[in-house]
């Protein structure tokens, strides 16, 4: 949590000194196979699919950008394990609150917009639940995952752009539930690809 505060403070202080462009907006996103059930060996499941809504913050300093914000990702289709291939675990409902922290390079495309890509990661505040044959286990996890990001800003007005963004993240929690007691051995895999569409407003463009 301390690291988040430090990064946000650095982010905010950069805003104060930025000569270029600070942008903020909203995004909607999608993640197929949230929880990565398809990647767990031997498990047969209908994978979880999440939709997300988020606040986008982007600071463009000439050819370099910083990207942050917050995103809430909620399952519109839960993960359902179709047989006993995950032992006692039967269903997942993984909710992700994500604070992305990325930096990278902007490639301006003159009047059309900006292509950008960079590295960093996301702080993840995991919640939700895992349903097992003996009840329901709450998820309460905080972790950081490294990832990468690439996106396109397409201008719709001189001070507003459409945003399309792809993020790949790798992060796994500690065990939160048990496939075969007595030990907890079922972890939540927050890895995977996220795509986002959004609109951002450029506050001090010219």
């Amino acid at each position: 949590m301390k690291r988040i505060v430090i990064i946000l403070v650095l982010f905010a202080s950069n805003i104060l000194y930025a000569e270029d462009k600070f942008s903020a907006g909203f995004s909607m996103g999608y993640q197929y196979d949230a929880g990565m059930l398809s990647d767990k060996r031997g498990i047969q499941a209908d994978v979880q699919q999440n939709i997300s809504a988020g606040l986008v913050l982007k600071l463009d300093m000439s050819r370099v950008f910083l990207r942050s914000g917050v995103e809430y990702s909620y399952p519109f289709s839960k993960g359902e394990i179709t047989n006993s291939s995950a032992g006692a675990v039967q269903e997942t409902e993984v909710i992700i609150t994500e604070v992305p922290v990325y930096a990278g390079i902007n490639i301006p495309l003159r009047d059309y917009g900006v292509f950008y890509m960079g590295g960093g990661g996301s702080y993840i505040f995991g919640s939700g639940r895992v349903k097992t044959s003996s009840g329901s286990e709450k998820i309460n996890e905080q972790l950081f995952g490294y990832g990468l990001i690439a996106g396109i800003e397409s201008e719709i007005y001189s001070d507003a752009s459409l945003l399309f963004e792809w993020e790949y993240l790798a992060a796994r929690s500690s065990p939160v539930a048990s496939t075969s007691p007595p030990y907890d051995d079922y972890y939540i895999d927050y890895s995977g690809h996220r795509v986002r569409f959004g609109v951002i407003y450029h506050f001090n463009r010219y």
């Binding site: 990647d39 767990k40 060996r41 796994r172 500690s174 065990p175 030990y183 907890d184 051995d185 972890y187």
Partner: peptide, 20 residues
């Protein structure tokens, strides 16, 4: 499944997660 299945925990035990 190697690192994907190595982590186990139980309250009161001194385990630490093997991270990515």
């Amino acid at each position: 499944d190697g690192i994907n299945s190595i982590n186990r925990s139980q309250s009161g035990t001194g385990v630490s997660t093997v991270e990515v």
